[in-house]
Structure formats: C-alpha cells, structure tokens
C-alpha cells in the first residue's frame, strides 16, 4: 500500500500532464496539476526547516564534534526567521498605513534587508568567487596535452579564453579583413556557434531521450527508486 498509492499518484498526474499537452480540452487540468506542485514545493520548505532544526539540535544535544557550529547555525536561522516574519523595522505599506505589518519584509534599511545586504550577499558571492581559484588550480593540474583529444581541447580553451577578453582582439587585430574570420574573437564566436552547438545538441538529444525514458519508467512504475524501494 505504501508503494502503490504514490505510484498511482505519479501515474495519474503524469498522464494528466501528457494529456494536457495534446488535448486542448484538458489544458486547464495541467495548470491545476502544476499549481499543486507549486504548493507542494512550498510545503517542502517547512519540511526542510524542521529537519534543519532537528539535525542541529541533535548535534548539540549529543555534544557531537563541532556542535558549536550547529549552535551558530540555529541561532542565525532563528534570528533571520524572527526578523523576517515579524518585519522588524519595516514601515507600513502606503495603502494600509495603519497596519504595522503591512509593509514589505525586504524594505531597504530594515534589519532584514541589512542581514541580506551585509551578511548573506557577501558570503555567497565570496563562495562563488572561489571558483576562480579552483579553476586555476584545476587547470594547472589537469590540462595536459596527453593525447589528441586533449590537444584539441587545449587549443580550443586558449582561443576561447583569449577571445573572451581584450587580449584576443589585440593579438589578431593585424589580420586583414579578408581573414577577419580568423581573428580570435570571431573564432570564439564560430567555435561556440558551430562546434559547441553541434556537440551540445548531440548531448542534449541524448539527455532528452534519457530524461524521456526515465520519466516514462517513473510513470510506468518500472523505476521506483524515487520511492526508495529496490524491492518491496
């Protein structure tokens, strides 16, 4: 039973979405299904938050290694949630000036905005920018002209890297207009447009078929791994 009901739900909603695509009459059913999904997706946030609290509370309770991190996480979570929900420091909406909570939680200058602007934003941006460092070290380690494929890849990489900057323009600007196609910035565009697109399309077709057949398996109940079951 625990297995069959989700399978039925999956098969049913999958079927509805397919029908909705081909049968104009049923188009609105598809919309309903999609809206249901949106609702579910929103509920997932609560599930996530609950687990977050449980995970870190447990860590603290058992005094596991690094439980202090958990304490900080929980504190930050609670603080942000409280500030955001209670709209501290938010001025009321102009339409409803009498209602203290009618303002928007993201109002600039308010504490929540402040958290976002001065804690969240720099932190995520910092993490993202670490990519640059890792690209450099990975390139140093892994880009070896070991075989023909690697050499081709290296050559392309150089062209693209240069073509994406002013260096490429300077390096080949001496080429006459009749050879303009060989200028690095134009080569870059051509590589992206022709070579990359051809390759990407092939991969995308393969992936699309893979997606389609996996979806079909899910619909037919052949692939139940998403239910966490190998066998009953």
């Amino acid at each position: 039973m625990k297995r069959n009901i989700p399978l039925l739900i999956t098969a049913f909603s999958g079927l509805v979405l397919i029908l909705a695509y081909f049968i104009p009459m049923t188009q609105s059913w598809g919309e309903v299904a999609a809206i249901w999904f949106d609702i579910l997706a929103s509920i997932a946030f609560i599930l996530g938050g609950g687990n977050l609290i449980k995970l870190h509370a447990r860590k603290m309770a058992l005094r596991q290694a690094g439980w202090a991190y958990s304490a900080i996480t929980l504190l930050a979570f609670a603080l942000t949630l409280f500030i955001g929900l209670s709209k501290i420091g938010v001025s009321p909406n102009l339409q409803f000036p009498d209602m203290a909570w009618s303002g928007h939680y993201r109002e600039s200058g308010a504490p929540f905005w402040w958290i976002y602007e001065y804690a969240f934003k720099p932190l995520t941006a910092t993490t993202f920018s670490m990519l640059a460092f890792y690209i450099a070290s990975a390139a140093f380690r892994a880009f070896r002209a070991k075989n023909l494929e690697a050499i081709l890849l290296l050559g392309t990489a150089f062209i693209i890297l240069l073509g994406r900057t002013f260096a490429g323009i300077i390096l080949t600007s001496w080429l006459p207009d009749s050879l303009a196609g060989l200028r690095i910035e134009n080569l870059t565009v051509e590589i992206m447009r022709v070579v990359n697109t051809a390759g990407s399309r092939a991969i995308m077709i393969g992936i699309a078929l893979g997606v389609a057949s996996t979806s079909l398996k899910v619909l037919l109940g052949v692939d139940r791994s998403y239910l966490g079951s190998g066998e009953e």
Binding site: A136, F140, F158, A167
Partner: peptide, 8 residues
C-alpha cells in the same frame, strides 16, 4: 585568463 593560460 592570461594567468590560466600561463599556468596551463
């Protein structure tokens, strides 16, 4: 980009 090219 030049640095990465150099490293490679």
């Amino acid at each position: 980009h030049l640095l990465i090219i150099g490293l490679i």
